[in-house]
């Protein structure tokens, strides 16, 4: 089957979805990735609201469970994620100035922050499991484990993304087209963004 010739007017419209229009507003990263980020935010949002409303009806239970958590580790994890995000921004800035290869080290720094987060969280889980805590222990522990683990999986996925970007930067692949770099960076920031609510919600506010 042979396709009929394309219409010129429509060809002009058939550009990519990445919103690289000449007008000033510009989304940093791919539209499809941003759609995905919005879906993720919605998922976390629903989970956060569910936590808050479940707590409304079981205040003592939630406060007692929360008191057993180590707030300092939570804060340290927050700082690690924030630092990771800032380092990713530095890598993006470096790439924009045409120093892709040199800015790979910023990406490596961001990955180190992510890995430390994973290590701290893993030790937190190890302690919790050693204490016999499971999803069925209490409503609070169900939420604590579910929310943090769902986030934990996102950190791991984010680390995979960062590793790919690090490799790409080392080969200076984003000089012409920063779209993959910016898309991956936006995803990593999203992982940070949800933790900024998760931390006070689960660890601090009582």
């Amino acid at each position: 089957m042979r396709p009929p010739p394309a219409l010129p007017r429509l060809r002009a419209m058939g550009h990519d979805t990445t919103l690289t229009a000449d007008s000033t507003p510009r989304l940093s990263g791919d539209l499809a990735v941003w759609f995905f980020i919005l879906a993720e935010l919605l998922a976390f949002g629903v989970f956060f609201a569910a936590y808050a409303f479940a707590r409304m009806r079981h205040r003592e239970l939630f406060d007692a469970g929360q008191a057993l958590l180590d707030r300092n580790t939570g804060a340290l994890n927050t700082i690690l994620l924030l630092s990771g995000s800032a380092l990713v921004v530095r890598a993006v800035q470096g790439n924009q100035r045409g120093e892709g290869r040199r800015s790979a080290r910023w990406m490596l720094g961001a990955m180190a922050c992510g890995l430390l987060f994973v290590g701290l969280k893993a030790s937190e889980y190890a302690a919790a499991f050693a204490a016999g805590i499971s999803l069925s222990s209490s409503l609070f522990h169900m939420f604590y484990l579910s929310l943090t683990f769902f986030h934990f999986m996102h950190v791991i996925l984010g680390l995979v993304v960062l590793a790919v970007l690090w490799q790409g930067l080392r080969q200076d692949r984003y000089r012409q087209d920063a779209n993959p770099l910016e898309s991956g960076a936006a995803y990593w920031h999203m992982v940070d963004l949800v933790w900024l609510i998760l931390f006070p919600l689960v660890y601090v506010i009582h």
Partner: peptide, 19 residues
Amino acid sequence: AILKGSVVALEFMALRHAG
């Protein structure tokens, strides 16, 4: 938390340029 989140969204995610 809202303030911190706004910084990450507007600055790090560069949304202040996204319309």
